[in-house]
Structure formats: C-alpha cells, structure tokens
Design a protein around this nucleic acid. Structure first.
Length: 201
DNA sequence: AAACGGATTGGCT
DNA sequence: GCCAATCCGTTTC
C-alpha cells in the first residue's frame, strides 16, 4: 500500500532513513511506470548538519524545498549532470532529507534498461544516487513534487529488513563536513548487489 | 555578468 | 581500484 502523508513529517530522520529500506519507490513518467526497492539511503539532519545544503539555516531557491513539510521530493543537480533524489521529511521549517542512493529494479525493468542503456543484471544500472534517479526517470522537474500523488510515490509492500540485515556507515562524498563526516548515517541492505561501492561490506 | 565547485559516474589500468 | 571528465545552479561581483 502507498505510504500516506502522515508517514513523512516524522522528525526522526535516522529512523526514517532505515525504515525506507525495503520500501518501493514508484514513478509514472508519461504513463511509463517503473519502481525499485530502496536498498541504500543517507540521512541529512538539517540546519546543524555540516553535510547538508541547509547547514546553518541556509535558505536559497534550491534549498527552499527542504524547508517544506515532509512528504515531497527534493531533487537537485550534482556535478552539473546528475539528478539526486531525496525524500523531504520532518515538519515545515525543519529541513530534513533522506538521499536515495540505490534501488533494486522491480517494476518496468525493460523501461529502466532502456533509460540506463544496460541490462538489469548489471548492478550499476541503479547503484549510486545519480544512477538510481535516472533508472526511475527522475529529473529536476520532480523537485518539490508531492510523494503521495500519482507521478511519484512510495509503497510498503511488506518487504522487511531486520537490524541484522542493515549496515550503517559514514556518508559518501562529504569529507568537507568535518566532524559530521564520520557519522554513521548511511544505511544499506547487507549483501544487496545494487548497493553502491564506497565502503561496501 | 562571470566564476566556482560539487550528497558522482564510468572508463581505464 | 583509481582518477579525471563534466556541466549548470548557486553564489558573488
């Protein structure tokens, strides 16, 4: 079943980042429906997080999306070419976000293969945040879209991972975040082939 | 109006 | 496993 709007305003972003593992992320792009199981996430805990775009309460046209009420998408461009998809959580004014770093292709696999120009047996088809977003057809036009609508949504299909199935490591690519660089806020499903490479166990 | 630099990827060794 | 290409939004002048 589709997660409803009440799921997202939760202010425990670490709990949410873990809870999203096993949930199924859907997109409908021009009536092409694709979906994947979320197998890797990172938590960004807001204005006190030196790795967050919203660190220090920074508000720009870009970061404004994160300050909205939880339950919308935050999609931004990285390295001038990669669209990175985040779930905005917590309440209005508290810019929490959860980066979706990898999915396991589940629905519309032929469409995903065409978008990525490779077969779904290759782990790199949806491994890493840029690849996962591209696999699902997510670009910047999805920024600020509501996650309970009919273009992008998340379902609970009763795929459950226990604490023993989940690994926590430092987040990737945020060495500039000083003492926050080593916090174990990246979560992934142990042994899943679509989890991205850095620090893979 | 112009410079800057990145929550990465993928190709090459 | 390592390293370098690669753009555009953001920031600053």
């Amino acid at each position: 079943m589709k997660l409803d709007a009440a799921y997202y305003p939760n202010d425990n972003v670490v709990w949410l980042a873990k809870d999203l593992l096993g949930k199924v992320l859907y997109t409908n792009v021009n009536n092409s429906i694709t979906a994947g199981i979320i197998v890797e996430t990172e938590a960004y805990f807001g204005i006190e997080d030196k790795a967050s775009h919203a660190y220090g309460g920074r508000r720009t046209n870009r970061t404004e999306t994160m300050y909205c009420m939880g339950g919308i998408a935050y999609v931004y461009l990285c390295y001038g070419m990669h669209n990175l998809f985040n779930v905005v959580s917590s309440v209005d004014g508290d810019p929490h976000a959860i980066l979706i770093r990898a999915i396991e292709p589940l629905v519309g696999i032929d469409i995903i293969e065409e978008r990525r120009k490779m077969v779904s047996t290759k782990a790199s088809i949806s491994s890493g945040p840029g690849s996962a977003a591209k696999a699902l057809g997510i670009d910047r036009s999805f920024n600020a879209k509501i996650l309970t609508g009919d273009e992008i949504w998340i379902e609970d299909q009763n795929i459950k991972y226990t604490e023993q199935d989940i690994v926590a490591t430092p987040r990737v690519g945020i060495a500039y975040a000083q003492e926050h660089a080593l916090l174990p806020l990246r979560f992934f499903v142990k042994g899943n082939k679509y989890v991205s490479k850095p620090n893979k166990i």
